[in-house]
């Protein structure tokens, strides 16, 4: 897949890291401000898509990247279920039990396991949106017109 012109390339180089950083901010502060795992994950995927679309890559690195992203996605989903099961093992016997100390409402480290759920769901959403995009590109490269 070909890249775009110099204007888009250079702007993407400067901006993409900052967009990724903003996605992390939305995820990590998800229990304090608007946002959370879903929104931040899609923003992170958007920054990765921006880099791929503007720079362009060859077929083999796309396939390699897709395999890595699939593993990341599955691992994140398993982590979500593992945390839920951990809640089952500690304290009262309830799935999705919030077993960590809650802290003060409004602090960054508070709300028990909710930030961990946010982080893993964010990784999972980012990885799956990125995989969908990658598979569309790979399919296009694979079958010439």
């Amino acid at each position: 897949m070909k890249g775009m012109t110099i204007i888009v390339k250079k702007t993407a180089q400067l901006i993409a890291g900052m967009i990724f950083m903003y996605g992390i901010y939305v995820i990590v502060h998800g229990h304090l401000t608007p946002g959370g795992g879903f929104a931040g994950g899609v923003i992170m995927a958007g920054s990765l898509i921006l880099v791929i679309l503007s720079h362009g890559t060859d077929f083999f690195s796309l396939v390699k990247e897709e395999m890595g992203t699939t593993i990341v996605e599955s691992a994140a989903t398993i982590c979500v279920i593992l945390i839920a099961t951990a809640g089952f093992l500690f304290g009262t016997k309830v799935f999705f039990n919030n077993f960590l100390p809650k802290g003060n409402v409004g602090d960054l480290v508070s709300a028990g396991v909710l930030p961990l759920y946010n982080i893993f769901v964010g990784i999972e959403v980012a990885a799956s949106v990125f995989i969908i995009f990658l598979s569309l590109i790979i399919f296009k490269e694979e079958s010439p017109k």
């Binding site: 993409a16 890291g17 990724f20 950083m21 992390i24 990590v28 990765l48 602090d107 960054l108």
Partner: peptide, 21 residues
């Protein structure tokens, strides 16, 4: 705590996008 999270997030960003900077 905020500074520690910021350092970790910046390291992740640098690892992902340092190649393109």
């Amino acid at each position: 705590s905020n500074l520690i999270v910021g350092v970790v997030a910046s390291i992740i960003t640098a690892l992902f996008f340092g190649k393109f900077f």
